[in-house]
């Protein structure tokens, strides 16, 4: 059992380190996620773990606690709808509005073990005829080095490849390597994985045409959500798209974005005038650079200062 004072300490620690909001009814969650760490680090009980964190002498254990508490299941083509929107709405509109040869950039802001960026890579491979020779770069970021290492490897077990993936996609996009299913090399080459804290400065990332940031904001308090949305608005092209989780919204949090009418979970800049279907996107013919800070965000999306040191949560598959 975790004592009340230790629970409060863990909650404050996680808020400071990851932005995670741990309400008072999460004792079971906290205990179930931290028990494996007691065994792993040979600690007698939760009080001892709290003591180690208070003393601050073990970054390894501190990171492990943050990771254990901020992990989530990750699936290929999770929720399906955003991926339909990606191929039917976003990709055609952006392809039509960009100059030939200008590459598109996509950011998966909580890439976890890679299922989301690789799902996008598969769709791009399947829709190659739609975008011709246009280059598309996918950047997958996450807080956890371990998770990103798995993502870079692109290897999944048979349970992971059967959730969300159709058999035709499995045959087309994977190779069998021993007991693993490995994403084919040309798809892995489309994705660059980087370790990144969502509350660090974004200027090193460049700008993006689409940002997937699904099921991440739900872990943060409202000021932190607003801060992240403001930062993302600054690195998203004027006619770009922000994709949030189905249970997430910007309403009451940020005025930087508005829902793309008829497309649940897909947002555009508040000042944009997307028609919601190919060929009529705002900014048609308006190219944009991809250098750091190469385009200005709408005035309404000015970022607010974020608390220093906060880290975003990560998602991780339970295998």
């Amino acid at each position: 059992m975790i004592s009340a004072s230790d629970y409060d300490f863990f909650a404050a620690f996680l808020k400071q380190r990851s932005g995670l909001q741990l309400s008072n009814d999460k004792h079971y969650l906290l205990e179930s996620r931290l028990v494996p760490l007691l065994r792993k680090f040979e600690l007698a009980d939760f009080a001892r773990l709290a003591q180690v964190l208070r003393e601050g002498g073990s970054p390894l254990i501190s990171d492990a606690v943050v990771e254990a508490m901020t992990t989530n299941e990750s699936l290929f083509f999770r929720d399906k709808t955003p991926f339909d929107d990606f191929t039917k709405t976003m990709l055609p509109a952006l392809h039509a509005s960009r100059a030939p040869g200008q590459k598109l950039r996509i950011w998966c802001a909580a890439a976890s073990t890679g299922q989301e960026p690789y799902s996008l890579a598969m769709l791009l491979d399947e829709h190659m005829a739609q975008i011709g020779a246009r280059r598309v770069d996918i950047v997958g970021t996450d807080l956890s080095s371990d998770v990103l290492e798995r993502a870079r490897g692109g290897r999944y077990n048979q349970f992971e490849v059967q959730r969300g993936l159709g058999v035709q996609q499995l045959l087309k996009h994977f190779s069998k390597v021993d007991d693993w299913w490995e994403v084919k090399a040309h798809l892995r080459a489309m994705v660059e994985f980087r370790k990144f804290n969502l509350l660090e400065p974004y200027h090193g990332l460049g700008t993006f045409d689409i940002i997937f940031c699904r099921n991440v904001l739900i872990y943060f308090d409202t000021p932190t959500k607003a801060d992240i949305l403001g930062r993302m608005a600054r690195v998203l092209a004027p006619d770009g798209y922000l994709v949030l989780g189905a249970a997430e919204t910007v309403i009451g949090i940020s005025d930087a974005f508005k829902l793309l009418t008829g497309h649940r979970g897909t947002y555009v800049h508040h000042a944009a005038h997307h028609a919601g279907h190919p060929g009529k996107a705002a900014g048609a013919g308006h190219g944009h650079g991809h250098g750091a800070g190469s385009h200005a965000a709408p005035a309404s999306s000015a970022p607010r200062a974020g608390p220093a040191g906060l880290k975003p949560p990560v998602k991780q598959i339970g295998s």
Binding site: Q158, V167, L170, L171, F174, K176
Partner: peptide, 8 residues
């Protein structure tokens, strides 16, 4: 029979 050949 969990290999590509059988699936195909």
């Amino acid at each position: 029979m969990n290999d590509l050949d059988h699936i195909a």
